[in-house]
Computed example of a mutant assay.
Amino acid sequence: MAGEEASVAAAFDKYLALYREIEASTLPTVDPHLQSQIKTAIAGLIRTTVVASETGIFSTNETLDDLPTSSIKLLLLPALLGTLTLKRTDTDRPEVLRLATVYLRDFLRRCSEYGVVKGCFQEEEEEDEEEEEEEEEEVVRGGGGGGGGRSKPSPQELQAMARQRQDKIQRFREKKELEGRLAELQKALEKKGLDEDVLREYQLKLVRKFVYESVEELDSVTMERQMLKKISLLKLKDSTAITTTTTTKPAAPLKPILITRDACQKNVFGLGYPSRPTMTVEEFYDQRVKDGWFPDPRRNHGCLQDRATFTQEEEEAVKEEEEEEEERKEEEDDPDNLERLRERDEWRDTHRRGWGNTFNRS
């Protein structure tokens, strides 16, 4: 078990270094090289999360004092995944925000359970799907939804906003103090080497720093999700007057990989298997036809093997279509068609009918 924990810790250090390289990069987020690094880091952190879950590094009956120094930094796995997921540009933004929210909440919940920072996470109830459907129906009917008729906040809301502002100021001050202390501890580690007490304090401070950053990111993500939701509801309202015959298949949602703390959670969440099929053979062929890789069997009438299976009605329809196409080219003076006809006439002038291979011919 100790060997597995050491390998997990080594893998985490590798991808933590890659995470810091991504954070320090001056490239734009949409840069292909940066996106490649982000995907590599996410895939590596997911593999590390799965191994950490199988190894059972975290347990429900442990406290922060029970965790070995080498395992404290592994608390950052969902925090790194959440931050890197927000930088992805290859997926729809609402799906990116949903996945990042799962990771960040899992990180804050875990830190709250271990008492890393008191009061860093308050369990929020997810909005019920039925309420969302009712809100969408209200918007479609023209009600607007959201209860936007009230212009002034209530006294309770004003008090809540004041508390939130005070909490942000307090977190900002504590975060600045943490950053200064982290710089001092890092210098001490470079001078003294791997001192157990200094290393443990450094890792705890690092986790606390990520807690404050994750709280800020989660607030921003929540605001962006609400904004995108309102925009989608308005678009839904505008699209109710437009009827379309084509339907698009929604993309499969991304599945977050979280550290499970006992066997029961493993049975509920599973470990994730990326090799599950995402489309049928027919859907794959249709996609290839759409991309131009495969010929469209509904438009390919030039193959004699296919035309041999046609019925008389289908063969007559194909011939009629070819004749109409030929007439259209003649009327429009298609240059390719004119060139072809001239070459055929020139060939006939020098080759009489019946000429050809006369070998063994009486």
Rank of each mutant, 00 (worst) to 15 (best):
A2I: 15
A2H: 14
G3V: 09
E4I: 07
E4Q: 11
E5N: 09
S7V: 10
A9K: 04
A9P: 03
A11R: 08
L16T: 06
L16S: 03
Y19W: 03
R20N: 14
E21H: 12
T29M: 06
Q35D: 04
Q35N: 01
I38L: 03
T48P: 00
V50D: 06
S53I: 01
T55F: 03
G56Q: 00
F58Y: 12
F58G: 02
S59I: 08
N61S: 08
T63Q: 13
L64G: 10
T69W: 00
T69A: 00
T69S: 05
L74K: 05
L74G: 04
L76A: 01
P78H: 08
L80I: 05
D90P: 07
T91C: 10
D92Y: 10
E95M: 09
V96H: 00
L97A: 00
L99F: 07
L99A: 04
L104A: 02
L104R: 06
R105H: 11
L108W: 01
E113L: 07
G115L: 02
G119Q: 02
F121H: 06
Q122Y: 13
E123N: 11
E127C: 09
E129K: 13
E129W: 12
E134V: 10
E138L: 05
G143A: 02
G144M: 03
S154D: 05
Q166A: 13
I169P: 02
R171G: 04
F172I: 10
F172M: 13
E174I: 08
K175T: 07
K175A: 08
E177I: 06
E177C: 06
L182C: 01
A183G: 09
L189W: 03
K191R: 14
K192F: 07
K192C: 04
D195H: 04
D197Y: 12
K205N: 12
R208Q: 14
K209Y: 06
E217K: 09
T222F: 04
T222I: 03
M223W: 13
E224A: 02
R225T: 11
Q226S: 15
M227F: 15
L228V: 08
I231C: 08
L234F: 13
K235W: 14
S239Q: 15
S239K: 14
T240C: 14
I242F: 15
T243C: 10
T245W: 14
T246F: 14
P250H: 10
P256E: 04
P256K: 02
L258K: 02
T260G: 09
T260L: 09
R261G: 06
R261K: 11
F269N: 06
G270Q: 14
G270N: 10
L271K: 12
P274Y: 05
F284Q: 11
V289K: 02
V289S: 01
V289L: 01
D296A: 06
R298C: 01
R299S: 05
R307S: 07
A308C: 09
A308H: 15
E316D: 13
A317R: 06
V318A: 00
E322F: 09
E325L: 02
E327W: 11
D334S: 04
R344H: 13
E346I: 07
R352G: 10
R352M: 08
N357H: 08
F359S: 11
F359D: 13
